[in-house]
Amino acid sequence: MASPNGPHEGPVGVEQLGLDEGMVVQELGWDEDVDQELRDDVMDVIDAELIEDAVEAVDVVLLWLRDESDVADALVDALRDLSDSGYIWLLTPKIGRPGYVDPADINEGANTAGLALTSVVEVSTDWQARKVVRPRSSRR
């Protein structure tokens, strides 16, 4: 079945993120190199703008991260406005792209932050996304 948004790759990537209309999505780590088409697709799906400074708990955080960043610190910062049932999509450049983050560094950072990695999805030509959640055992 064809995507209602046309044949380009973006909607396929955004569908894998599990977003729904009305969700509050915070974006952290934006820079000139992010995938603008993916961002636009996310805003189309949630039917709202991405927010930077939250005034309420958010459902999802899109965290753009590159190799010069400390993974654990970035994930802890992303938790600040995240609802108890919310999750983080950690977006990193794919292998061979500028800013690539080694998966071992991502695993170590998630463990240090007390978080769990669940799935990895290809969301665009240059970016992949890892879903990061609070472990069930740590929820109170």
Results as ranks from 00 to 15, higher is better:
residue 2 A to G: 12
residue 3 S to G: 02
residue 4 P to S: 01
residue 5 N to S: 07
residue 5 N to P: 01
residue 5 N to R: 09
residue 6 G to A: 00
residue 7 P to D: 10
residue 8 H to L: 12
residue 9 E to D: 08
residue 9 E to T: 03
residue 9 E to Y: 07
residue 11 P to W: 06
residue 11 P to A: 06
residue 13 G to R: 03
residue 14 V to L: 02
residue 14 V to T: 14
residue 16 Q to T: 12
residue 17 L to F: 11
residue 20 D to V: 13
residue 21 E to R: 15
residue 22 G to S: 10
residue 23 M to H: 09
residue 24 V to F: 10
residue 25 V to T: 09
residue 26 Q to G: 07
residue 26 Q to N: 07
residue 27 E to G: 00
residue 28 L to K: 08
residue 28 L to R: 08
residue 29 G to V: 00
residue 30 W to K: 02
residue 31 D to T: 10
residue 31 D to Y: 06
residue 31 D to R: 14
residue 32 E to V: 07
residue 33 D to I: 07
residue 34 V to W: 06
residue 34 V to E: 05
residue 35 D to L: 09
residue 36 Q to I: 15
residue 38 L to F: 05
residue 40 D to W: 07
residue 41 D to V: 03
residue 41 D to C: 02
residue 42 V to T: 09
residue 43 M to S: 06
residue 43 M to T: 10
residue 43 M to K: 09
residue 45 V to T: 14
residue 47 D to V: 13
residue 47 D to G: 13
residue 48 A to I: 02
residue 49 E to P: 03
residue 50 L to I: 08
residue 51 I to P: 01
residue 52 E to F: 02
residue 54 A to H: 02
residue 54 A to W: 01
residue 56 E to F: 01
residue 57 A to P: 10
residue 58 V to D: 10
residue 59 D to Q: 12
residue 59 D to G: 10
residue 60 V to P: 08
residue 61 V to A: 14
residue 61 V to T: 15
residue 61 V to I: 15
residue 64 W to C: 06
residue 65 L to G: 08
residue 68 E to S: 14
residue 71 V to I: 13
residue 71 V to R: 07
residue 72 A to E: 14
residue 72 A to Q: 12
residue 73 D to E: 15
residue 76 V to C: 00
residue 77 D to L: 01
residue 78 A to S: 03
residue 78 A to H: 01
residue 80 R to G: 02
residue 80 R to A: 04
residue 81 D to V: 03
residue 81 D to M: 05
residue 81 D to N: 09
residue 82 L to I: 02
residue 83 S to Y: 02
residue 85 S to R: 09
residue 85 S to W: 07
residue 86 G to C: 06
residue 87 Y to H: 14
residue 87 Y to R: 13
residue 88 I to L: 08
residue 88 I to E: 06
residue 89 W to E: 11
residue 91 L to W: 13
residue 92 T to S: 15
residue 94 K to I: 15
residue 96 G to F: 09
residue 96 G to H: 10
residue 96 G to I: 06
residue 97 R to H: 05
residue 97 R to V: 09
residue 98 P to C: 06
residue 98 P to T: 07
residue 100 Y to T: 02
residue 101 V to K: 03
residue 102 D to N: 15
residue 102 D to Y: 11
residue 103 P to Y: 00
residue 103 P to E: 04
residue 103 P to K: 00
residue 104 A to H: 04
residue 105 D to A: 15
residue 108 E to S: 14
residue 108 E to D: 14
residue 109 G to P: 10
residue 111 N to D: 11
residue 111 N to W: 08
residue 113 A to N: 03
residue 114 G to F: 00
residue 116 A to S: 14
residue 116 A to K: 12
residue 116 A to W: 12
residue 117 L to G: 12
residue 118 T to Y: 11
residue 118 T to I: 13
residue 118 T to G: 07
residue 120 V to N: 10
residue 121 V to S: 09
residue 123 V to D: 00
residue 124 S to G: 04
residue 127 W to D: 00
residue 127 W to Y: 00
residue 127 W to R: 02
residue 130 R to K: 07
residue 130 R to G: 04
residue 132 V to R: 05
residue 132 V to E: 06
residue 133 V to A: 02
residue 134 R to A: 08
residue 134 R to C: 04
residue 134 R to W: 05
residue 134 R to F: 08
residue 135 P to S: 11
residue 136 R to M: 14
residue 137 S to F: 15
residue 138 S to P: 10
residue 139 R to N: 12
residue 139 R to I: 13
residue 140 R to E: 15
